[in-house]
Amino acid sequence: MKVIVPVKRVPDTAGDKVIDADTKTMDRDAGETVLCPVNEFAIEEAVKLKEATGAEVTVLLIGPDGAQSTIRKALSYGLDGAIQVTDDAISGSDALGTARVIAAALADVEFDVVIFGNQSTDARTSLVPAAVAELLDLPSLTYARFMEIDGDAITVHREHEEGWDVVESTLPAVVSVVEAINEPRYPNFKGIMAAKSKPLDVKSLADLGVDAAAVGAGDAAATMYAFEPRPPKAAGTIVTDDGSGSAADDLADWMEEQKFI
């Protein structure tokens, strides 16, 4: 079985995010970057398939040279190889543009299942997995909180607000997983040491036969016009008890004003 896990380099989830005022896109060099934490759940599912069936797992990443450390982090879980698509023209792509690039990269390789995280921790659109499935004309099994593969049949439990649906399909298929699906392990030492020696296939848009005009900021269906940092939290009202007894009245007035009473 061949499994593809698309991964993303994102700003450190715990760190401050900086948006470039000129391009209105994330400044990815402003802080620490990490492998998107949601990808770890997809990787864990892939590693389980590897353990159970000897599946060959390939990581797919779109990003510049600097993102190779993210690829190695993903490979350190014991995965087999990586494809990196890198091209300046991709910069600024929206979800659809990203999906076009991923779909083009996948069109070139053999696979049985693609396992996405359901969303990245930076953009959080959740659009890419379904868009990739649509572009490749493959079954889309998103929001999986459980997945099982038996021969060329796949079953997932698709999570929604009221519970989950049991969705069955045939392979090849595109899956996106939610964090409830498993508890990712930590990479082991051998995996860390082996990551650098795993094959890495670097491709440009031209290699994939993608028209540079169809991706990137210029062609994005979504346009960012303006952004504003979240306003600082306003100070609360302090009612001081000066001993005269008026504090209770002040407090009552304030509560009435706020419609608490």
Partner: peptide, 14 residues
């Protein structure tokens, strides 16, 4: 080395 840094980061996280 990069690997030693990765080891350190994972150990710290764990």
């Amino acid at each position: 080395t990069e690997e030693q840094q990765a080891l350190r980061d994972i150990a710290r996280t764990f």
